Amino acid sequence: MTDQRSFARNAIAFSLAVIACCALTVTIMLLAGSPAVQPQRVLDQDALARAVLNNVESDDSFAKPPTIDDVACPASIPVEAGREFECNVVGVGDGNSSGHAWVKVKIKDDQGTLSLD
């Protein structure tokens, strides 16, 4: 009789352990797939600054070509198709011009493809 009780206790304990593991696995899978848990993708600031700089390098309003340090863009821009913002390029003017340019940036798709005007 004690062998049957011991077997029953072990079977119940094993079953509860399996159920607990399954519940933990399902909870982890739900949390991992939740958008609130996934980190939000943002634009790479250096790549954005280089793209903006390439867009204004040929601009005649600068006495000397601006550098990457002259580019100011908003920080931590989420990668969302259709999002628009502006970056500012402040360099050295030539006396007749300011050495200042605004570049309008639009995110074209969820991959972070940019359109610059």
Rank of each mutant, 00 (worst) to 15 (best):
I68N: 01
P39Y: 02
D60K: 13
V26G: 03
E86V: 10
D69W: 02
G33M: 02
S76T: 08
A81D: 05
P74D: 09
A47C: 01
V52P: 06
F7P: 00
P78H: 07
S58P: 00
P78G: 11
A47F: 02
W102I: 15
N88W: 07
E84R: 15
V42N: 06
G91D: 09
V71P: 03
F7W: 03
K104P: 00
R50S: 11
E80V: 15
S98D: 14
D59L: 07
S6A: 14
W102D: 12
P74C: 06
V89G: 13
N88A: 13
T25E: 01
I28Y: 07
D44E: 07
C87S: 12
E57F: 11
V79T: 08
L16T: 02
S98W: 06
A17E: 06
N54Q: 13
A81S: 15
F7A: 14
R50C: 01
H100Q: 10
V105C: 09
A8Q: 10
A49W: 00
A8F: 07
A23Q: 04
R5Q: 09
K64D: 08
D59P: 02
L43W: 06
D60W: 06
K64S: 15
D94Y: 12
A81H: 08
S58T: 14
A17D: 06
V26K: 04
F62L: 10
L31H: 03
L43M: 05
G33H: 04
G93E: 10
V105E: 03
A72T: 14
G33S: 10
I28H: 06
A20N: 05
T67I: 01
W102P: 00
G95R: 13
I77A: 04
F62V: 10
E84P: 01
V105M: 04
D3M: 07
D70N: 15
Q38Y: 02
C22D: 05
G93T: 13
V52R: 05
P74K: 03
I77D: 02
A11N: 07
A81E: 13
L48K: 04
V71L: 08
F14I: 01
C87F: 09
F7H: 07
G91H: 11
A72Y: 10
E57S: 14
A8V: 04
M29S: 11
N96C: 13
P65I: 09
Q38L: 04
I68G: 06
A23K: 02
E86P: 00
S76D: 14
D46F: 09
A101Y: 02
